[in-house]
Design a protein around this nucleic acid. Structure first.
Ligand SMILES: [Zn+2]
Ligand SMILES: [Zn+2]
Ligand SMILES: [Zn+2]
Ligand SMILES: [Zn+2]
Lengths: 159, 159
DNA sequence: AATCAAGACGTTATGCTATAACAGGGAAGG
DNA sequence: CCTTCCCTGTTATAGCATAACGTCTTGATT
């Protein structure tokens, strides 16, 4: 189907959200603790890798990056952590990329809307407006996937 | 990640769109011919299976349904057809289901927005409103994925 | 008619994505 | 101490998609 866009594996060191990696990790730790969930060393490690990726990252790329620090982890190791973070709203799955990205909103649990540049891989996350008005009469939305692909302003100008 | 919702494989005989299966197939044939694309017997066969599914259908389920009429087709057979239909806007991919569905709009090429009932698997397709206004300044959208999951009116009332 | 280029299809093989199921270990509470 | 729950490791398998090559048909060009 050729439907999966590619994403680069190049992390970036600039501070995208105005928070350092460790600040973001600590914020996640706090959110976990507030919900009586355990922010274990493994989870902290994986979450940090997701944050450092500074964009969508694939499960098997996370798996690679866990090596050799944690031996040779197997897929369930990372998928379980991703499930956990998704449940807490700390990480979103980007459906059309088969990838995962840290939520960059301070209050997780919202409906995320992504704008993904296909040229430079930059991703902007916004709070989606309500689509209840768009729904067929009586339809009750419980979750939504809203992703846009195209060119960011910079790339659009230099294209 | 447990992110993939399930869909039932039960086709349904009711006429969802007001057009019969053969009418839908003929409409697709016409759209192909208008664009100087070939609506081959294989493509017609696969398109008809998608229409008959009357909802999202998976690539490997299509593959099964092609047997034994067409011997033992392999995955590329169906993925090539799906690519073709998607290129013409006759079929949409539903990202969160890893499934494909016939466009039920008469003028393909639009941005589709799906409302998918997780209880009865009914899918309503609408024309999405523009999200350009929601985009970061200067972002140029080239394609979008908009899918909502929840309960249709009937299921919400009887839940 | 002979030639050529493009596209459609069959086939083999492989790669990527994700989960089921079972076993062991550690933390928290009784 | 002992039980319960959850976290993690591990093996195996399921599910989704494409690369690459060969053959044949179609339709245009010479
Ligand atoms: Zn978010
Ligand atoms: Zn860009
Ligand atoms: Zn459509
Ligand atoms: Zn329903």
């Amino acid at each position: 189907m050729n439907h999966i866009r590619t994403i680069s594996a190049t992390p970036c060191e600039h501070d995208h959200s105005g928070k350092s990696v460790s600040e973001q990790v600590n914020a996640a730790r706090k959110i976990c603790e507030q919900q009586d969930e355990r922010f274990t060393p493994l989870r902290a490690h994986i979450y940090e890798l997701i944050v450092r990726a500074d964009g969508p990252i694939k499960a098997y790329d996370l798996l690679e990056q866990l090596r050799p620090d944690r031996g040779s982890p197997k897929p369930p190791t990372v998928y379980r952590a991703l499930d956990f973070f998704a449940r807490l709203g700390l990480v979103h799955r980007v459906e059309a990329l088969n990838a995962y990205i840290a939520c960059d909103h301070t209050h997780p649990g919202h409906v995320a809307e992504f704008f993904i540049c296909e040229r430079c891989d930059e991703v902007k996350e916004t709070h989606a407006h309500s689509h209840e008005n768009c729904a067929p009469n009586g339809f009750v939305i419980s979750s939504s996937v809203i992703e846009h692909y195209g060119l960011c302003e910079t790339c659009a100008l230099t294209a």
